[in-house]
């Protein structure tokens, strides 16, 4: 097994995903199997190969510095689970 249950708990916490404790072993098994599949990467000779982040080796087009967006707060905040006085509300943020 590539991963153990504790690894899975840590990953879930880092990814902000609540996982039922009872499901952890199954995730551990499934994720380990995926990483077994991923081992296939080692079959390929990648010496001196430059990583490829994009299919097209294109370069960034840049935008002129202009304001093109209008205020759409009302429309956007209709989507919010909780908003008041123009602000999105979340449980208290502790710094």
């Amino acid at each position: 097994m590539v991963l153990n249950d504790e690894d899975v708990r840590n990953i879930a916490r880092l990814a902000r995903l609540q996982i039922d404790e009872a499901d952890i072993p199954l995730y551990t098994t499934e994720l380990s199997r995926v990483f077994d599949l991923v081992e296939q990467l080692d079959e390929v000779n990648i010496r001196d190969i430059i990583p490829m982040a994009h299919p097209a080796d294109a370069v960034q087009r840049l935008r002129t510095d202009e304001v093109t967006e209008q205020n759409q707060r009302e429309k956007f905040q209709k989507l919010a689970p909780m908003a008041e006085s123009g602000l999105y509300l979340v449980p208290k943020v502790i710094e």
Binding site: E84, S85, L87, Y88, L89, V90, P91, K92, V93
Partner: peptide
């Protein structure tokens, strides 16, 4: 920015 003052037990988010 997170604004902590105005809402009891909640924070307001201004983006």
């Amino acid at each position: 920015k997170s604004l902590h003052e105005e809402f009891r037990s909640m924070s307001g988010i201004d983006l």
